[in-house]
Design a protein around this nucleic acid. Structure first.
Lengths: 155, 155
DNA sequence: CGTTGTTGTAACGTTTATGGTTACGACAAG
DNA sequence: CTTGTCGTAACCATAAACGTTACAACAACG
């Protein structure tokens, strides 16, 4: 090869941890409430997640919009679940955090004069749509109750 | 609400178009070869995709590493497929472009002293692994021949 | 009615993936 | 030797998500 560059290996990390953190936070609140507490603070959750409380508040704000969590203000404030862990699926969480599609079409539209450029969009969309449907089906199969059971089993 | 901010609406674009462009490029080469041409240039492909030739060359370099495409240098150089469109699945393309996982765990490890922080990683990994398996199964079901058929049908 | 603890949210800065562009060396056909 | 194309580095731009600081809003409680 020509360059035999030192700087190869295009990274490949990315990927959203929002789903993980959201599931973590809700599960934490659920367990905390089952142990008799009224509300959980973003500070407590952030300690378990190992991040900043503001990150938790921002994420929980999205979950609240979706009707999965509620918050109370003032002194002694905090967060609680809107419904039981068993009634929240990972699909609910996924939709709540407005996770975008896995794949996307071209950034700028391909050449419409070209047969391939003209037809590739719909062709790929058909595949992507089917994959999204399957993904949603998989996510819908698992509830946060399942997750908590798994978590407690690992102790 | 307090702020009722003007700057809400967390964006949600992202998503990889690499898969789309890779499928587009390979399909284009395949069709071009069926029409009697030996090789396709990155310039021609870039015109159809509506991007820069270097982007195409970079992408095809990845596909070549995976054994899906070959290139010829010198004058009259260009790209060709290593095997027929019918023998290339979207899973092959997916693996070739080294697409990362859909979901990720925490950026920095959660609190291991906390029950949830300790067990949430393995619990979510189990779910994510199952989803990846399903995704791969779906991608393996479609070949570039299927894509081309769809493309030509739309004319 | 003030003190206090917590949410709500703006405003930045940082990191990372990807795409776009320019530049130029390597290479092979003719 | 000329010419056309790949191979790749180098750099900039864009965008998403995270991390952090700051502070107003708010409600319980003395």
């Amino acid at each position: 090869m020509a360059g035999q560059g030192v700087k190869e290996a295009r990274p490949e990390v990315s990927a959203n941890s929002r789903m993980t953190v959201a599931a973590h936070a809700l599960t934490w609140i659920g367990l905390y409430q089952r142990r008799g507490h009224e509300v959980a603070t973003s500070e407590q959750i952030a300690t378990s997640v190992n991040t900043n409380p503001v990150v938790i508040r921002r994420l929980l704000a999205d979950l609240r919009k979706a009707g999965l969590a509620e918050s109370r203000r003032g002194a002694g404030a905090g967060w609680m679940l809107s419904r039981d862990l068993a009634a929240i699926t990972l699909l609910d969480v996924h939709d709540a955090i407005a996770a975008g599609p896995i794949f996307a079409l071209h950034r700028s539209p391909p050449d419409p004069e070209c047969v391939v450029g003209h037809g590739i969009g719909p062709a790929m969309t058909a595949v992507y749509d089917q994959i999204e449907r399957t993904l949603r089906g998989e996510l819908a199969r698992t509830t946060l109750e399942d997750i908590l059971r798994d978590v407690l089993k690992a102790v």
